[in-house]
Computed example of a mutant assay.
Amino acid sequence: MLDPLFPQVRAGLVPLVHGCPWCYIGKARFEKGLAAFAHRDEVEVVHRSFELDPGRAKGDVAPVVDMLAEKYGRTPEEARGMEEHVASNARAEGLAYRTEGRDHGNTFDIHRLLHLAKARGRQDELLTLAYRANFAEERSVFDPEVLLTLAVEAGLAPDEARDVLADENAYADEVRADEREAAGLGATGVPFFVLDRRYGVSGGQPAEVFTQALEQAWQGRVIQPVAAGADVCGTDGACDV
């Protein structure tokens, strides 16, 4: 599974979004909610790092269905059913989603590369491509060559992206800083959106919920708790399905 990063909005609003299948879905729903927001052109979205399975060894890559079956104590057939449930939600948002052949692994290199993309103004482009590769296509984002290809497709310089992937310390501090900030803001599951560093929306909520949250944050009113913990993935790599 891929952990994207969590967004942040300037000009009075700030979402925090992380990865997992619900983040793939949540990003699409947030973007629809943002599109319906009257002040959308004044909102800046920034994605920040949040690892779902930070203790997993680099190179330890396994099929998602196998991981789900082991983690939840389910049969392979039941695990596939869990994936189909998520897939139906993704497809309802117009997102492609394949339930077979996807990998689960350590995402630290992806996050480091996304920080390079942020520095070059191409973060959303790379995140969108990485999500598509991970959830919809037959490309493993845990393969360095695939990551390099995605980086180039997103508009990054090949040599620069290759150098970042080769240097394990490149942008490592930035990833860790994001994770500390997420912990400080109380994010224990993903997706998690923070608006103006004051208001939070947890889970892959419907688009209209995001529009309402943006409007309330813009007006400075306190947002009521919104279905905290619904459709999220936790720091142990487990996802509510």
Rank of each mutant, 00 (worst) to 15 (best):
V46K: 08
M67L: 15
D53N: 06
L52P: 08
E78D: 11
N89D: 09
E42M: 04
K71P: 06
A69R: 01
R48Q: 11
A57K: 11
A90K: 01
A62E: 09
A79R: 01
M82D: 09
N89Y: 12
E70C: 06
V86A: 08
K71E: 13
H39K: 10
G59R: 00
E70K: 09
G81S: 05
S49N: 10
E42N: 01
R91I: 07
E42C: 08
N89T: 10
R56M: 04
D66S: 09
V61L: 04
R91D: 05
E42I: 02
V86R: 06
V61W: 02
D60P: 00
K58L: 13
S88F: 07
P63C: 01
A79Q: 02
N89E: 14
A62R: 07
R74F: 12
V43H: 02
P54R: 02
D53Q: 11
R80G: 13
E83D: 08
A87W: 04
A87M: 15
E51M: 10
E83H: 08
K58R: 10
K58I: 14
A92C: 07
E78W: 13
R56Y: 02
G73K: 05
F50G: 05
V61H: 01
D41L: 00
A62C: 09
M82V: 13
R74I: 11
M67S: 06
H47C: 14
A92R: 08
E83C: 15
R40N: 04
